[in-house]
Structures are given as structure tokens and as C-alpha cells.
């Protein structure tokens, strides 16, 4: 079976581990548990053409900049998800920086911006103009909520599709 490595990138506490947990085990915990190093998970997805792909998910410890250790984790990734906490504007700035750093480390690979915690709309700090600016550059942005399960499967499947055509 085809295997693809996906990296979860983003600042700490944006919900990378929760998104993977929601995707792999369909579970969610409100308690924040920081990740140290990297946590590996796998899940098989069936794409629109019926093809099955085993996704190897690297949930990398959150950071606002790419450390040397994190660069080693990226090797061999076929694509990545850039996760943003929609209720903390600085995590959006971090994601934009991280995208450039990842591209410098592993070259052009498919990626998607995930605006997570979309259930907390009253605390939302990401404006439409910020989103539109990225959309104008041809980037994909998906609103997700690991808590509610919103947009999670769509995000992983859409990235898997992108990785197969790239």
C-alpha cells in the first residue's frame, strides 16, 4: 500500500495533537498536553478515486520557529499541515514564518493552512483580509475544530489528494 509521511507544523497549543487524535481515534480531550519531540500515528484513507493510502502522521512539538531538531523530523515528508489557533493572532504569523522555513528545508511540498478552534468564534482574531491575502496566493485554508470534528477529515484527505498529484 502506498505510504505518505505528513508533518503537523505550528506554534504550541494550536491543536496539532488534538487534530491527529480526532482524525485517528475520533477522540478529543479539553486538557492541554504539550508534545515533546514527535509522536507518530498512522491512518489509512481512501481517496476519491478509491485508492487507499497509509498516512504516517508526524505530530511535531510546537514551536514558533523551526529548530534544528524539528528540521530532522521533516525529512521525507510528502506534505504538511500548518496549524493556526484562530483565537491567537501570533500563531498565524508563526505559521507564515514556519511555511517559509519548511520550504527552505524540504523544498516545495503540498501544504494546507488549518485555522483551528473555529468553535471559539467569539474569541476569533484572524481577519478576513488576512485569510484573503493567502487565498490570493493560491494557498488552501480550511477552518477546523478538533473539538467539534469540523473540517478535520477534509483537511487530511485534501492534503493526501494534493500529495498524490504532486
Amino acid at each position: 500500500m502506498l505510504q505518505k509521511k505528513i508533518c503537523m507544523i505550528g506554534d504550541f497549543a494550536v491543536g496539532k495533537t488534538s487534530l491527529v487524535a480526532r482524525f485517528v481515534t475520533e477522540g478529543f480531550s479539553d486538557k492541554y498536553m504539550t508534545t515533546v519531540g514527535v509522536k507518530i500515528d498512522t491512518k489509512i484513507v481512501t481517496l476519491t478515486g478509491g485508492q487507499e493510502v497509509k498516512l504516517i502522521l508526524w505530530d511535531i512539538a510546537g514551536n514558533d520557529a523551526l529548530t534544528t531538531a524539528a528540521t530532522s523530523y521533516l525529512r521525507g515528508a510528502a506534505g504538511y499541515l500548518l496549524v493556526v489557533d484562530g483565537t491567537r493572532r501570533p500563531t498565524w504569523e508563526s505559521a507564515l514564518q514556519l511555511q517559509k522555513a519548511v520550504m527552505a528545508a524540504i523544498g516545495e511540498k503540498p501544504f494546507i493552512f488549518l485555522l483551528n478552534k473555529s468553535d471559539l468564534s467569539e474569541q476569533w482574531e484572524i481577519t478576513k483580509s488576512m485569510v484573503n491575502e493567502q487565498l490570493a496566493q493560491g494557498h488552501t485554508i480550511i477552518h477546523t475544530s478538533a473539538k467539534m470534528g469540523k473540517g478535520v477529515e477534509q483537511a487530511f484527505e485534501e492534503l493526501a489528494e494534493k500529495m498524490l498529484v504532486s
Binding site: 505510504q3 505518505k4 509521511k5 507518530i40 521525507g76 510528502a78
Partner: peptide
Amino acid sequence: TEQIFFLEGL
């Protein structure tokens, strides 16, 4: 890589 997944791509 079919037996030890994390080695995929490494």
C-alpha cells in the same frame, strides 16, 4: 518501511 512506519522517507 512496511514494518517500521516511522522510517518512511528517512
